[in-house]
Design a protein around this nucleic acid. Structure first.
Lengths: 242, 242
DNA sequence: TTTCAAATCCAACAAAAGTTCCAGACACAC
DNA sequence: GTGTGTCTGGAACTTTTGTTGGATTTGAAA
């Protein structure tokens, strides 16, 4: 009994702390909570798939979720790695159209789901909620645009430097890069493991990163900053060559 | 007098036809119109710049506008080429933060501007307007995500094929690709003119495009479709080689 | 028509990214 | 411990993209 209660405690969500629900009174929060359904997922399970009809808005209570897309050749692009407290699938929750990406539980996950219909009804009665959703989508837009520009203009070493510097820039990605596998970094940057490995070695040889055990850490923040912003190394050695 | 009246006629905007203003009653449309200011720009003039404080929401009455970003090295990425009836800068109009891109008048432009403050006030009193804005941002999000995936996964010939097939996919870009200069196509695809020229010749040699005068036209829609979706030519010749 | 600037073609090269392959290292289960 | 599967290191190679530079075409203005 004790254990199960601890478990329940561990997955309590502070709804009012999420950007979407800020500024709402208790009654509204209650209404929102009661229109959410709780779901549990085992590790490695699909929460929803890209292209399926809107799965609704998800609030993570515990565990870790990967949002990603794949191309026909099987390469995958991780859009976010999320853990509580955070939420996802705003777009499909708002417009009711197909989910724009896959959502997969990395660990076991517990989440609350608000269907598109409920979301629309809630927003209709709670103006503040709609206003918050508007601001959330605007924010999301800026994040996507920044990543689009990164893909357009930045080389892989530069994107990698950015990933190390502020994972915040890659939105809500929360694992620190040093603990990600190279495969996972590659998926976030939209490339392949070998290329990431090569770039990591390059940055290490240039003195921007250092290695302890199997993980890389930041050695020269300013140098990384320069690389992230200009695609160029400050005046160090070549980057990609060994 | 006659001429000036014609001019005025030519730039009348059907506000109710814009997605953001659909479903609003006449009184609301009037309120919106009266909180908009009319501006005129000569060809090649900055309408606003990336990073400046929110310029507000723009409704194009006449002329053509380019939205773009640049990188430090000076390469530019065209996000949209717009002409009436359309509108832009939803994100900064909604969140009041810096403009996320540059807006430049390609031709002489006349536009109506609704400031961030007015937009917020209008949305506060007109729920339908806020709801429309929410849907517009969701739509915009999907467009950006699609372009992000294109940059992540597609080769340049593939992106070029997509540009020819449905400029709709590149959102509200309206000039037909055949009339764009190679320089302009390059900016849309996020690459350089030389590369676009090479890719165009490749697609022509593969029989997917044909050339009349200085412009290219679609010769094989199915082949282009295949290329756009799979990065591969159906079973034709090599694409990039001569 | 003539002229000029912009747009295009094309080749050769350089650099970045993607691919293939295999050998080690490490981490966890048994 | 021992093994097994995942993760990493790194070389060699191919393909794609970016760059440079010069020759040619085109369209509109003079």
């Amino acid at each position: 009994m004790n254990i199960s209660m601890q478990k329940l405690d561990a997955v309590v969500v502070d709804w009012a702390a999420l950007p979407l629900f800020q500024g709402l009174n208790d009654a509204a929060i209650d209404r929102i909570q009661s229109s959410a359904r709780r779901h549990a997922y085992a590790a490695g399970e699909f929460i929803f798939r890209e292209g399926e009809t809107s799965a609704g808005y998800f609030v993570i209570a515990s565990g870790m979720v990967r949002l990603y897309r794949t191309n026909p050749e099987g390469r995958l692009h991780t859009l976010s790695l999320l853990r509580a407290p955070s939420a996802f699938n705003e777009v499909a929750a708002v417009d009711g159209a197909a989910n724009p990406f896959n959502a997969l539980s990395v660990t076991a996950v517990e989440a609350y789901v608000i269907s598109h219909t409920n979301m629309i009804n809630l927003m209709a009665s709670e103006r503040v909620l709609m206003s918050n959703a508007l601001q959330a989508l605007a924010r999301l837009n800026r994040d996507y645009l920044e990543r689009l520009e990164d893909m357009t203009f930045r080389t892989i070493p530069s994107r990698l430097a950015k990933l190390f510097l502020h994972e915040s820039a890659y939105d809500q990605i929360c694992e620190t890069p040093s603990k990600l596998t190279q495969e996972e970094m590659a998926a976030i940057l939209g490339t392949t493991r070998e290329v990431v490995g090569r770039a990591l070695r390059g940055l290490m040889n240039a003195g921007l990163l250092k290695k302890r055990g199997r993980y890389f850490y930041i050695a020269d923040p300013e140098g990384l900053e320069t690389l992230a912003e200009t695609n160029e190394l400050p005046k160090n050695l070549t980057c990609v060559k060994t």
